[in-house]
Amino acid sequence: MLELVIFSTLNGVLYGLLLFMLSSGLTLIFSMMGVLNFAHASFYMLGAYFAYTLGMYTGFWPALILAPLLVGALGSLVERFGLRRVHANGHVAELLFTFGLAYVIDELVQMVWGTVAVAYREPSYMREPLFTLFGTDYSIFRGVVILISILMFIALWYLLKKTRVGMMIRAALTHGEMVGHLGHNVPRLFMGVFGFGCALAALAGVIGGPLLATEPGMAATLGPIVFVVVVVGGMGSLQGAFYASLLIGLLQTFFVAIDASLADVFNALGANLDPYGEVGRISLATLAPMTPFILLVLILIFRPRGLMGELEP
């Protein structure tokens, strides 16, 4: 039992951190520009594929830096020549633009790298166990992923709170027009933030690719969950996104770990549900991947501004 709890916690935290890396960029973009970027997970996928191709020439570590930079540059271009053009037509048009972009990126990835998954793996020395607990290995790579996520979180916090650019971004989050009136180049700031957000997503892709899988469907499956994190966390709140990511990560892993069905849960609460009926039979493990969406709907009904957000979306 203890080992289950320990490993579920470790797994939940790891998954949560990966989610946070993905969603932190989206939170910045969303709160500043009001754009819920549907293609955000596609940039995550591009990060993984770029790192795979670059890694064949440079190795894992340089690719870890180069791939996000490339994707970030690509993201800036998308903002400059795509989103900015559409911006004049309102938020719905922007959302539709990113929706179409996700389609196109997914197809282009298939065109370049094929329809089957690619063999993007972590370097072999990282496959060794970092430690072994109750006979279960925990690989070095997983440790590295946690370390990178934490470093990124600290760097992001420093950037936003302690630098001049960070101050501008924070100001633009809440008082975009005022920042413009003060003579700052807000469009350029938008472009930078969009590119930066995409680069963060790509970083998540570089480490998420070997951890999960690098295949053309990787964006489509993770995309909606990232939205959930941003909305549940609350608009404009990185802290909220952080808690939401961890919450979803832990919730999913523990739902899987607990061996109980809906009937067990409800009957423990005093209800009388047939454990072999079609509803009672459903196990919590089955519901695990649905938890983000259940959470999303509940939050939007009962607390629309999210866990830590100040404004309603």
């Binding site: 009001g34 819920l36 938020h91 959302l95 909606p224 939205f227 959930v228 909305v231 649905m290 969406f293 259940i294 999303l296 709907v297 939007l300 009904i301 629309p304 309603e312 979306p313």
Partner: peptide, 15 residues
């Protein structure tokens, strides 16, 4: 309306 509606219908659809 707006983003909140978009997100809640997304959640509904998935569920």
């Amino acid at each position: 309306a707006g983003t909140a509606f978009a997100m809640i219908t997304l959640g509904l659809g998935e569920m």
